[in-house]
């Protein structure tokens, strides 16, 4: 199968062009500004590494950046585990209602962020659907406070929000997977587990990687969900950057954090690509290993 490289090229190619045109110019401006400093309401073009020193020496910003990356990686992993069987099922076991199922899967994307978030509050809240139900069944006698406004709640809603991206990426991979390969493997003596580990996983790795990168980037960039669902611990590096840009008019420091985050993200992605590239799975995903 030409799958690996062609698929990645087809998905990443146009995205790359759009990124260059739409994102690189503003990023360049941010990079320049990140070396300046702010004096009340003026940006003083007085280049120094002061802002970066401030970012790197601040425990809070380091923590927030690490938290963003961890959160992105965690949600990517959880969505992968959930989406894998779902995508398999839709691609390989469903015939008639496939389009309907895929559309249903995308419903979360049709509704606005806020609608989704407030719906989740109704479910997870202190007097929400879930707590009421658990109390009714007698499983608990006091509401579980941490269902909402907690890291757990943030995780649940982020998984819900970004699951479709993972499923779509994987679904495409499963659709292009030739069923005869499974027969061939069985013919050569492979059991179910072996087929899963040595055939299905490597051959769907392109979709897994594409989905994971999408989810990772989207989760790192989502500050509304943690803010409205995560409670007092819902701060994100993005909201911190937004505060600096919007409220404090400290574009230089905000830019420096943004760039540090960007470099860290690229670092994580590069590390994943390098590590995966050394395995047979990765060589399926990225062409020749």
């Amino acid at each position: 199968m030409d799958g690996g490289r062609t698929f990645l090229a087809a998905t990443v190619g146009p995205v790359l062009v759009a990124l260059i045109v739409l994102c690189l110019a503003p990023l360049g401006v941010l990079l320049v500004v990140s070396f300046f400093r702010v004096d009340f309401v003026s940006i003083v073009p007085d280049p120094s590494l002061h802002n970066y020193a401030q970012v790197l020496s601040s425990g809070s910003y380091r923590y927030l950046i690490a938290k963003a990356l961890m959160s992105g990686a965690t949600i990517a992993a959880i969505t992968a585990v959930i989406a894998y069987p779902v995508a398999f099922f839709i691609a390989k076991r469903i015939r008639e209602v496939k389009a309907a199922l895929l559309t249903a899967l995308l419903i979360p994307l049709y509704t606005g962020d806020l609608v989704r978030i407030f719906a989740w509050r109704l479910i997870l809240g202190r007097e929400g659907v879930l707590n009421s139900f658990l109390i009714w069944t007698g499983a608990i006698d006091r509401p579980i406070e941490t269902l909402l406004f907690s890291p757990t709640a943030t995780t649940i809603v982020l998984v819900y929000n970004y699951l479709p991206f993972m499923v779509l990426g994987l679904w495409l991979s499963f659709e292009t997977l030739d069923d005869h390969l499974f027969e061939a493997a069985a013919d050569l003596g492979a059991g179910r587990t072996t087929i899963l580990l040595r055939l299905v996983l490597p051959l769907t790795a392109p979709g897994l990687v594409a989905g994971a990168l999408m989810v990772f980037a989207l989760v790192v960039g989502d500050f509304i969900t943690p803010q409205l669902i995560g409670g007092a611990s819902g701060v994100t590096v993005i909201s911190a950057i937004a505060d600096l840009f919007g409220a404090a008019f400290d574009w230089p420091l905000g830019s420096a954090i943004a760039w540090t985050l960007l470099v860290a993200m690229v670092g994580v992605v590069a590390a994943v690509v390098v590590i995966l590239g050394r395995t047979p799975w990765g060589s399926a995903a990225f062409g020749r290993g």
Binding site: M1, D2, G3, G4, D178, H180, L181, E183, A184, A185, A186, D187, L188, G189, A190, G191, L199, P202, L203, P280, S283, A284
Partner: peptide, 30 residues
């Protein structure tokens, strides 16, 4: 006996070679 344990091997119409493995690894699979 499941296909994986039958002392029988098949050459498929579509060949069904494993795209992520090189020729030697394909042959070595079984």
């Amino acid at each position: 006996t499941p296909p994986s344990r039958r002392p029988v091997n098949t050459v498929f119409q579509s060949y069904a070679l494993f795209p992520h493995l090189n020729v030697a690894d394909n042959v070595a699979f079984g």
